[in-house]
């Protein structure tokens, strides 16, 4: 299945990196909501640390995207001045944090994706992207260990924790179909050696997620198509509120230094 996006020359490269940056930014923004509100203080530390990793990679990726455009926009221009329809993150990143099980399930699905994605991007012909990937894959290794260990504890814990984890998985699974819908940007990026082979990524992801789910005694839901796409800028109704909050100071006092 292919979405059609017509790309001006080189704009695919900007778009490819921008999407990665938006995933990192929006997911980091969501995880940061846990600070001070986690089930225990150890998790407050872990959540802040994970959010920080994502914001850090968002900064590198958005700066790189801006450079690819010829320095027309900085990381902050891209984060704070775009509207909802211009953000290209996966919908899964923008969903509200839910309970601890909901957050852990989302982390497992995305950490697995990021781990395999950035492992492959280390070989990107875009040297900057390859260097960013080398740093990110180390973080993702750690994130995935943390989230998958938690999912196993929750799935193979009490009846209550298993019920919550399975429910969270059932509710979020449909959003993963978006991960592997390669469009023109992905195809061109892959051919140019900048991006990864999406079908290979999908296979690695599926095998890895299957292993984690069976270790966690959870049932993998049926695949379901989803007629919405963050990469097309078609978001959930949650996105507008997330941006309204994130951009509030910049929107109230435009053009100032902070």
């Amino acid at each position: 299945m292919k979405n059609s996006v017509t790309c001006a020359p080189q704009s695919w490269h900007f778009e490819y990196v921008l999407r990665l940056g938006d995933n990192a930014l929006i997911l980091g923004q969501r995880i940061s909501e846990w600070c001070g509100h986690s089930p225990f203080v150890e998790e407050d530390v872990a959540m802040a640390n994970t959010a920080l990793d994502h914001i850090g990679r968002a900064r590198m990726l958005l700066t790189h995207a801006g450079n690819l455009q010829g320095n027309k926009q900085t990381e902050d221009d891209l984060a704070y001045s775009r509207n909802e329809r211009e953000f290209k993150n996966f919908l899964l990143c923008e969903l509200p944090i839910g309970d601890f099980a909901y957050t852990i399930v989302r982390q497992v699905l995305l950490d697995t994706y990021h781990f395999h994605l950035y492992a492959a991007l280390q070989k990107s012909s875009d040297d900057t992207l390859a260097a960013i990937a080398a740093k990110v894959v180390k973080e993702s290794t750690y994130h995935l260990r943390h989230s998958s260990e938690w999912l196993i504890r929750l799935g193979d814990g009490t009846e209550e924790s298993q019920r919550r984890a399975q429910l969270a998985l059932d509710n979020q699974w449909r959003f993963t179909s978006e991960f592997f819908l390669a469009d023109e940007v992905d195809d061109v990026a892959h051919q140019a050696g900048v991006g990864v082979d999406v079908s290979l990524l999908e296979k690695l992801w599926r095998d890895n997620v299957n292993d984690i789910l069976s270790a966690a005694c959870l049932l993998r839901p049926e695949d379901a198509p989803l007629r919405a796409s963050g990469r097309m800028g078609l978001h959930t109704e949650h996105m507008g509120f997330l941006l309204a909050e994130m951009q509030s100071v910049q929107r109230a006092y435009p053009g100032l230094d902070w």
Binding site: L25, A48, R59, M246
Partner: peptide
């Protein structure tokens, strides 16, 4: 969640993480 730049957001996250 409302830090006005990404650098400020990162620094504030690091600080709050330290406090925990």
């Amino acid at each position: 969640t409302r830090a006005p730049t990404l650098r400020r957001k990162a620094v504030l996250l690091a600080k709050v993480q330290d406090e925990a």
